[in-house]
Design a protein around this nucleic acid. Structure first.
Lengths: 235, 235
DNA sequence: GTCTATACCACGATAGAC
DNA sequence: GTCTATCGTGGTATAGAC
């Protein structure tokens, strides 16, 4: 903090090196020794500046996540101001949710697509500290968007809306995580998946249609399953 | 294999204990020491029976995954037989994809919901051996479903279909992975998320609508982003 | 206050005795 | 088939140098 040295702060060098390595190999597979070696600092420096590997990981995520979620809320705020007292269109709300993620992916200074892949993986991580961290980071932002969607879709029961938001965040995170496995499954060339703008332009109509889908029939939940899930079928 | 002892085979005990622990903590965070302790066998037994931790993980996944994907293909086969030469309805194809996952989640002998959570996490795992394994496991199954969907949705360009299948598998895996973080985000009570049947009955209409959504407009991909992603907006 | 060297215990893996 | 002993490497803690 109060360092007089002209060299780049050790703390920042660690954070940058850690981000790159976490993105490349995931949390567990990244060693503190590889991070400190890449940053050109001593092994113990991580523990001095961050206290633990977990805390370092939180710091890496926060640096990108906080501005992105703030931008999302800002875009929603503006849309609501422009709408006066009326409800904001679903398309506009969804855009406020997707555009900041896309902007982050486009900015080479922020690690580009790789950071979103790291984020998507973090979502599915079983580590309790990661789950707790993400739910805290997202809680207020999601609450704002849920209220906005509720106004735009007054016919949709609140619980159904919660689920559809869940599906949206899932599809978004998962798509951005962009595992090679799914790339292969979809028979997509690696080069195509690198363009996140095209990706989100395809994703948005898909999610929008799901958001506006007819309500599910939950009346026969305990009935026989096979063939009855989405379309009644005779044997 | 050729053991004469009446005690349950060491190999099976290891696999069962490993499944439970992988489900609870994920791959990396699960130690061979905890697995062998839970199974009541020696540490070195894992390496003897499976060769490595990676191979053990593959065995755990295969035991549940192979039958599930086979059931999916069987359901699709039956639907196609019943349809004669005509295209199978999207609802029916989607059901063939979702129902086996639901059946697996309902069966307490197969670890219930927990296995699907493990599977969802595996999808997002950066470890190359996991990605390779999953893409091999899924390749043929996904190819069959893609062909079926292509017949049901003849107007949909092949590439767009690939993407939408990608989104569907993403939303499905992610939803079934059911991270606590997202549960909290969606303000859902833990008890509600335990019922996977209700979950899939809500998910199916959502995905179906996305599948049938109008084609995205990709003509102005390089245009300014803000507000233009899904709905043109003036500043 | 910042950084370094080093020790500590747990991990996955393996060789070799039984 | 099963076990013990051991190796290299992981995250972490601390004593002490600047």
């Amino acid at each position: 903090m109060t360092t007089a040295r002209s060299a780049p702060a050790t703390r920042e060098r660690i954070c940058g090196a850690a981000e790159a390595l976490f993105m490349a190999h995931g949390y567990e597979a990244t060693t503190l020794r590889s991070i400190t070696a890449a940053a050109g600092v001593n092994l113990a420096a991580v523990n001095y500046h961050y206290g633990s590997k977990e805390e370092l990981f939180r710091a890496v995520l926060t640096r990108r996540l906080d501005p992105m979620n703030q931008r999302r809320v800002d875009l929603l705020d503006r849309a609501e101001r422009e709408a006066g007292g009326r409800a904001v269109a679903c398309e506009r709300i969804l855009a406020a949710l997707l555009v900041p993620a896309l902007e982050l992916a486009r900015d080479p200074r922020t690690g580009g697509n790789d950071f979103l892949r790291l984020l998507g993986r973090a979502y599915a991580d079983p580590a309790p500290f990661i789950r707790r961290f993400l739910s805290e980071q997202y809680a207020t932002m999601i609450a704002r968007f849920k209220s906005a969607f509720a106004l735009a879709l007054p016919h949709l029961p609140r619980k159904e809306l919660s689920w559809r938001l869940h599906f949206i965040m899932g599809a978004l995170s998962y798509t951005l995580a962009g595992t090679d496995a799914l790339k292969l499954i979809a028979e997509l060339k690696p080069r195509e998946t690198a363009n996140d703008e095209v990706l989100l332009r395809r994703l948005a109509p898909f999610l929008l249609a799901g958001l506006k889908a007819p309500l599910p029939d939950l009346s026969e939940v305990t009935a026989e399953l096979d063939g009855a899930l989405v379309a009644p079928a005779r044997r």
